[in-house]
Design a protein around this nucleic acid. Structure first.
Length: 498
RNA sequence: GGCGCUAUGGUGUAGUUGGUUAACACGCCGCCCUCUCAAGGCGGAGACCGCGGGUUCGAGCCCCGCUAGCGCUACCA
């Protein structure tokens, strides 16, 4: 039985890269009939917050992949077990106490420090296994520990040999032991460190396949060493290519802001299925397929680790450009979903949007339900996100909509005669029997003939009069959607803008 | 610094055991449709497949070297 897990650390909102990792884990588990588990890696007490945990949970729920097969595991609750494991390793001689006083390092320049230290070590030909405590006798080590002297616990990495594993995505991976330091398992304050915690928890949870970001690829060797020291079975690994920003840097919350947060997409009117679809195709492609719109079912059916790419994917967006605030393809895909989703599935989402905007009316639940469905179906053809229903679509649901200046200038102010034509057209509209798409068209065209003006003039003016905009659905559909009385009233009101 | 990973049009990708006009989608441009804008249909621009060698009758696909980008390298996760 395949068992996979998604293991985010709650140090901020859910990153889209993490969301994609979660999706792939879910897809894989569901494809092979395995278990999909969730573990919150909240071992960094300073940075972890309950709010982040909540946001992650919400995000997964929004994506529709929150049907975890077992209880959610909180890593912090297992700290005692991790400590015990480290102590066990000492007893077995696979780890040792390091009584070297802890080095304080500024959190900011770690990368630099690492490089500098490595350079020094290289020039001085330092031995990675030269720690004086590495071969301290067990008696001496125990005595010093008992006397209360603080110590870190380090894994005793063999001086010679090579670590290797077969990554399901990246293939055969090898690393010489000399490249791996005696990594710290337990801090001198007794706090278990990442590599130890992950391995212990994955063992405890019975994880068979670890599917995670490529940034963990090289560290995997260290974890394998821990598995072996613990005498546990090493799982299969599958690393996912990173998602990069347009400048090819790793997409980060710090540098790129809200575009990388999954909740942004929810808040800006994305349909979960659309974003999920987009995410699935970032770094993975189904074999022998040319289309790209897939339902969850289809994704699940077609998913395979073999289809995952090795090269990183660029998430294409332009900072500071409202039109390109996120990847164009994601936007396109969402629009695709907005206009093609079965209406019954879209309606609840539109309802939520209208409710949030204060545009929902109880009658939509009753007598006006059919009108709502028809209207939504009409206007969704041009919309990109759910937000459009309350913004561009406002005129259909409320009378206090705004007029676009350019539209007024182009369709109303250009022709002075509209001052008289609009009220006259309103009158004609009011007199129209059985008001609808066809009758509205007949009435308007007849009126245009009589007034000796082009129908287009009245059509465009009407569009702006009824919706405040210069673009939108076929005008006669708009008339029908807005209704006879409201249409007439808006035509008269608009005459004032001429 | 060391180690590792990657490299097909602006972006996401397809390219079967090496054969060739390098395919699809997004985006961009044009035309058609038309009451506007979309959608849709049609067409177009855009890639000497990172660079340099080699193997071969023939390489995006194989080999070597280089370069670039990224990742990891911590008593962070």
């Amino acid at each position: 039985m395949i068992r996979v897990r998604f293991a985010p650390s709650p140090t901020g909102y859910l990153h889209i890269g993490a969301a994609r990792t979660a999706l792939f884990n879910w897809l894989y588990a569901r494809k092979v009939g395995g278990k999909f588990l969730l573990r919150i890696e909240d071992t960094d007490l300073q940075r972890s917050t309950d709010e982040s945990t909540r946001s992650i949970l919400e995000g997964l729920q929004w994506l529709g992949i929150s049907d975890y097969d077992e209880e959610i595991v909180f890593q912090s609750a297992n700290a005692d077990k991790h400590r015990a494991a480290a102590l066990r390793l000492i007893e077995r001689g696979r780890a040792y106490r390091d009584f070297t006083p802890k080095e304080e390092r500024s959190d900011r320049n770690v990368k630099q420090e690492i490089a500098e230290r490595a350079r020094h070590a290289a020039t001085e030909g330092a031995d990675a296994r030269a720690n004086p405590f590495r071969d301290l006798s067990p008696e001496e080590s125990n005595r010093r520990a008992e006397s209360g002297e603080p110590f870190a616990v380090r894994l005793k990495v063999a001086p010679e040999g090579r670590s290797h594993f077969e990554d399901a995505v990246y293939g055969a991976q090898e690393r010489d032991y000399s490249e791996i330091e005696d990594l710290v398992l337990l801090r001198s304050d007794g706090h278990p460190l990442y590599n130890l915690s992950v391995v212990c928890d994955d063992i405890e949870m019975g994880i068979t396949d670890v599917v995670r970001g490529q940034d963990h690829l090289t560290n995997t060797h260290k974890q394998i060493l821990i598995y072996e020291a613990l005498g546990a079975r090493v799982p299969r690994f599958a690393h996912l290519p990173l998602i990069l920003a347009p400048n090819k840097a790793k997409l980060s919350k710090r540098k790129h802001g809200e575009v990388v947060s999954l909740t942004t997409y929810r808040d800006r009117g994305f349909i979960p299925a659309a974003f999920r679809n987009f995410l699935a195709l970032l770094g993975w492609s189904p074999a022998g397929e040319e289309r790209e719109i897939f339902t969850l079912e289809e994704l699940r059916e077609k998913f395979s680790l073999e289809g995952i790419h090795r090269s990183p994917a660029v998430f294409n967006f332009a900072e500071g450009d409202a039109r390109h605030w996120t990847d164009q393809k994601a936007l396109w895909m969402n629009a695709e979903y907005v206009r093609t989703l079965p209406l019954a599935e879209l309606l609840p989402m539109v309802r939520a949007e209208l409710e949030a905007a204060g545009l929902w009316r109880d009658e939509y639940d009753g007598g006006r339900g059919e009108w709502l469905a028809r209207t939504v179906d009409l206007i969704r053809q041009r919309f990109h996100t759910l937000k459009d229903f309350s913004a561009q679509g406002r005129a259909y649901f409320a009378d206090d909509f705004e007029f676009d200046d350019a539209a007024v200038a182009k369709n109303l102010k250009k022709e002075p005669r509209l001052k008289e034509l609009l009220p006259a057209l309103a009158e004609r509209i009011e007199r129209t029997e059985d008001f609808g798409v066809e009758t509205a068209e007949a009435a308007l065209r007849a009126f245009a003939d009589e007034a000796d003006v082009k129908a287009g003039l009245l059509i465009n003016a009407s569009r702006t009069a009824l919706t405040g905009q210069s673009v939108g659905p076929s005008m006669f559909d708009v008339f029908a959607a807005v209704g006879r009385e409201r249409s007439a009233r808006r035509l008269r009101d608009a005459a004032r803008l001429v």
